[in-house]
Amino acid sequence: MNRLDEVFQQKKANILSVYFTAGFPGLTDTIPIMTHLQDAGADIIEVGIPYSDPVADGPTIQESNQAALKNGMNLRLLLQQLKDVRKQINIPIVLMGYFNPVMQYGIERFCQECHELGVDGFIFPDLPMQMYLDEFKEAFEKHGLHNIFLITPQTSDERVRAIDKNSDSFIYVVSSASITGAKTGISSEQEAYFQRICDLKLKNPTLIGFGISNQETFEKACKTAHGAIIGSAFIKVLEHSKDLKTDIHNYIRSVKKAHENIIH
């Protein structure tokens, strides 16, 4: 069974998904960061495939992409690093990135290798729904890989429903009209948008991302969605970290603090 399906079956609220860029801060930090995230209590890990031109990302993630590429990270190396990942990591792994490197790698080969490694799904911000349906769905599904779509405050209800219909995993609810890391905090206007999405009673679970950085924003997001995604804020933790293990544990604990008490 796909581990994303498992997570959403077992857990209905307060799901924390964390993004980091592979190859950042160090080329070989990929597996250690994943291990620390799992141990610290993350529910899903999003591994970023670095790209030269990440148009949907703000300065923090742009810089982590540049640094990772400079460190020598590329898609082939990332897949090599993930070779034995399932010996250590049992929570869902999602690869996130821009579509061009994957296209160059070869879609079929990429999907097959990801399946063998135990990857559960993909997020490609620049692969729109129609392109996915027309050309790539078949390959993804054949290898049991879920494709995760984004929706934004500007996405019409009609399109949200179409995306829901064509999704087989969670829906990534982008919290505001912005690139990553552009805004912090959640306004009442954003909360109204989250409520609107919640009221649509979608068949797939939702995770809210962009602007989630701490306990307060995580909790606000969890009120109307199944959980939330942290990206830029976590990259900043890594950027300044001298001790990855301690810093990752402290950060994740600080975000999830309230829930640990309430749930258990």
Binding site: Y51, D53, N100, P101, M103, Q104, Y105
Partner: peptide
């Protein structure tokens, strides 16, 4: 070679790894 740049699939100069 064929790839994606600025929203369209076209010919672009890129590395083997798909970096522009």
């Amino acid at each position: 070679t064929m790839g994606i740049l600025h929203g369209s699939r076209t010919l672009l100069m890129q590395t083997e790894d798909g970096q522009v």
